[in-house]
């Protein structure tokens, strides 16, 4: 009972996500960050270890209730790493650049157990989180600022569906360059239509094509720029359904595929399309075949998957606010973002 009461903050977050009160991944990230700041300043903890346990319980709760929600858990995972770093810093035990020799010869007693209670830990953590929040908020702009490096004059850019990050990125490029955008409508939700309207309003020359026309169009395209739901540990993507086909077509014509991704979308998880149960969500088939179709529905089973798995070899570049990286470099980014011990919670 005691445990459950403590979890009211995270269950509120989960319920808000479920009720669609918060929609964009940025909002989810900011909410999670606020939640942890609250926890650090108000929560019942004495040592870093206790605090880390509190955060871990929350990550587990999110994983159980929203198995496909990566953002909130990633933000919390990153904060775990921040707690570890601050603790090491405060306890003055951190040795800059541990060499292999030191690692091997380290005495077991030297391994930090984070149990000491440090006076300054709380304030320094809160300072660090405030910084982190600024980083989250500016992440979108930082990505958009790189637009002019990637988009050149008179290029044809292809994008799929709607992504806030891609939208910002293209609009930012449109301020300095003239180029054309082809938007794939992304059936069955057709968010591509909204995207095209928004781009056209900012005076970008926009063409909407159907999903089936992607291959035919690809030969004329210079770059594919897409957003993603998460970046997996192997550099692959869990992206909106339909993107795998686009990426394959791009591969065929050797068109570079650039993926815009915030840092909080990098997830230390290996899941592939072979495990659809864990990987995917199936939405209502109503968008594929209407419920009014009648008798035929008794004898067929319709799937409407939300995500596609895009293998890393189809991705050319991942662009985060720190700049562009190849998918093979994701493991390194992950180790910068999260602590090894927190990968699997």
């Amino acid at each position: 009972m005691h445990d459950k009461e403590n979890l009211s903050d995270v269950s509120k977050l989960v319920s808000d996500i479920k009720h669609k009160n918060i929609l964009s991944s940025l909002d989810i990230a900011l909410r999670s960050e606020d939640l942890l700041k609250e926890l650090i300043s108000q929560g019942q903890w004495k040592s870093a270890r206790e605090l880390m346990n509190l955060v871990k319980i929350r990550i587990q709760y999110i994983k159980e209730n929203l198995p496909h929600e990566a953002t909130a858990a990633n933000v919390m995972r990153h904060v775990l790493k921040v707690i570890r770093e601050e603790y090491e810093c405060e306890s003055k035990r951190k040795v800059e650049g541990q060499s292999l020799h030191q690692l091997v010869t380290a005495h077991p007693a030297d391994v930090l157990d984070y149990s000491e209670s440090l006076i300054n830990l709380k304030t320094s953590l809160i300072d660090h989180l405030t910084e982190y929040k600024v980083e989250l908020e500016s992440s979108g702009e930082n990505i958009a600022a790189q637009a002019s490096e990637h988009i050149h004059m008179d290029e044809i850019i292809l994008t799929v569906g709607k992504s806030d990050t891609v939208e910002k990125f293209l609009k930012s490029a449109a301020k300095v360059r003239a180029f054309k955008v082809v938007v794939v409508e992304a059936a069955p939700l057709y968010y591509g239509h909204k995207m095209a309207v928004s781009l056209a309003k900012s005076n970008i020359q926009t063409t909407v094509i159907s999903d089936a026309a992607v291959f035919a169009m690809m030969s004329r395209v210079n770059k594919v720029i897409i957003g993603t739901h998460t970046v997996l540990a192997n550099g692959g993507l869990r992206a909106a359904s339909g993107i795998h086909a686009v990426a394959l077509a791009a591969k065929h014509y050797s068109v570079p595929v650039m993926v815009l991704s915030h840092m909080y979308k990098f997830t230390p998880l290996y899941v592939g399309s072979h495990n659809q149960e864990a990987f995917n969500i199936c939405a209502s088939p109503a968008n594929v075949i209407p419920y009014s179709a009648g008798k035929i529905l008794n004898s067929i089973q319709v799937f409407n998957p939300v995500f596609d798995y895009v293998p890393p070899e189809l991705v050319t570049l991942l662009i985060s606010h720190q700049g562009g990286n190849a998918p093979s470099y994701v493991y390194r980014l992950l180790s910068e973002l999260y602590h090894q011990d927190d990968y699997d919670i």
Binding site: Y291, S292, A293, G294, K295, L297, N298
Partner: peptide, 9 residues
């Protein structure tokens, strides 16, 4: 709700 004739629903 719209539903076709012969549907189990």
């Amino acid at each position: 709700q719209e539903a076709g004739i012969g549907h189990i629903g």
